[in-house]
Amino acid sequence: MPYDRNHPFNDLPLLPPVQDVEDIEILRKLVTASRALAGANSNVKRLPNPYMLINTVALQEAKTSTAIENIFTTEDDLYKAVSDTIKEDQANAGTKEVLRYREALWTGFKQIAGRGRLELDAVIAIFRQIKNSTAGIRAPQSLTTIRRGQSEFRSGEVIYTPPRGAGLLERLVENMLDYLNNDDKYTADPLIKMCVAHYQFEAIHPFADGNGRTGRIINLLYLVQKGLLDQPVLYLSKYIIVNKEDYYYHLGAVTQRGSWKPWIMYMLDAVEKTSSLTSQLISSILEQMEATLEHARTKIKWYNKEVNELLFSQPYIKPRMVGNLLNISSRTTLGKYFNEMVEAGLLHPAKDGKEVYYINSDLIAILQG
């Protein structure tokens, strides 16, 4: 039967796709995307402490992925929350959403490290972390539809009705996960599988909300699972938000016409371009770290590599962070140390009420560039 957007897409085909999705043009694009991804992962390995990326590259991915869903926060609010300059429960709604995305990403990363595969309970846990909810897979009676936004032409019009029915969503998600996990049965290249499974997850739309963000986290975790990324830090959402209309158009084309090739080409291009972007971002951070360390050592006697790494772990730094690192509890001593870093041009001070924190402007310039 022809696809009808006003009726549940219960005929969503199981994976793998019926048609061959690996023609010559796709395979050529796969080679360039794979090379770019390998280059980005090599740069990740250059970092002295990979967890530095939690509050730099991973935070940018979280912010942008959340913005795709029209949920926004400012860089300033986000950095304050990350540095504990403001408490998370005092943060605005947009900032809380971004922080939950970041935590969901790292929760999933730990589960992948422990199990070596994506499973349904992990997917549900990621969704719950994102939405701060105890909900799970949509109930059979849930009349979920995807409609045009209020700012769009023909606002409110139904553009897609995902599948619904007792046990159907669970079977579809389990099929998708089997496709990703079972390399003996499904032998496609991991990047091709990621592209195909991302469409499938968004088409299943297993949750009442938060499917886009959950799906984008699954992409990164799967790349980690297959050994293509050591850390889930690919800045994939940057490409999607810049090319948002194409993203939704190609998703719809698979649903309506089974048009897989343009969708896969789009996603492989996203991997290639954002791998290059992520690689450059990491290179810029490493180069600035080296330049800052070299400069600081000529100005500050006590300054060392560990403090330098801390200053590049997140854009806003509080004195107690350096105190904990150097085992210094004296406010007077810490005040002296931070004055020296300010005089050397490494940081500049700012206040939020009575709270004083210090900003690494060089790091912010890289992240916002």
Score class of each variant (00 low, 15 high):
S65L: 05
Q256V: 06
G116P: 10
S259C: 09
Q368N: 06
R331C: 03
V356G: 09
S155H: 15
T95A: 04
H205T: 07
Y3Q: 04
N41E: 12
I300P: 04
L12T: 08
K354F: 05
G323K: 06
I364F: 00
T298Q: 14
V196S: 03
D352V: 06
P17K: 09
G116T: 13
T73I: 13
K63Y: 00
P2I: 14
I192Y: 06
Y199F: 15
R216N: 10
R148S: 15
G165Y: 13
K29T: 02
Y199P: 08
A91S: 09
T32E: 11
R147G: 07
T298N: 10
I137K: 01
R5M: 04
L177D: 01
M52N: 01
R257N: 14
D84C: 07
R213F: 00
P13M: 00
W260M: 03
I366T: 08
L14N: 03
G116D: 13
T333M: 12
L236W: 00
D77N: 05
A113H: 11
Q141T: 15
Y179M: 10
V123H: 06
T298A: 10
V31L: 12
W260T: 00
L180Q: 00
P50W: 05
N181M: 08
F338H: 02
Y160D: 10
P206C: 03
L143I: 09
R138S: 08
G165H: 13
N41F: 11
V57M: 05
I54T: 02
P2T: 12
T95D: 02
L234M: 12
K87M: 05
Y186E: 00
I24H: 03
W263E: 01
M321F: 00
K238Q: 14
K185M: 04
E119L: 11
L105H: 08
W260L: 09
I112C: 10
G369Q: 12
L172Q: 04
M194K: 02
P140L: 11
T278C: 07
M321C: 00
E294F: 12
L12M: 04
T144I: 14
Y101D: 01
T333V: 15
S330C: 13
A203D: 07
Y235G: 06
L118F: 06
V196Q: 04
D20H: 05
E152D: 15
P206R: 06
A166K: 15
M341I: 07
V233D: 02
L105K: 10
D11V: 02
N10D: 09
Y3P: 03
L281R: 00
L326F: 10
A93Q: 14
L169N: 01
L143G: 07
N182I: 05
I124T: 13
K29S: 09
I130K: 00
V158L: 12
G345C: 07
Y266S: 11
G353F: 05
A33L: 03
A365W: 09
S284W: 05
Y79K: 09
S283M: 14
E97F: 02
E170W: 03
D246Q: 14
Q111K: 15
L105M: 13
V18Y: 08
K273L: 08
L236S: 04
A344D: 10
W260E: 02
W302Y: 11
Q200P: 01
L172D: 03
R216W: 05
R117K: 15
L310W: 06
A350M: 11
E103D: 15
L325A: 10
M176V: 02
K185Q: 08
V342F: 06
V173R: 10
A104N: 09
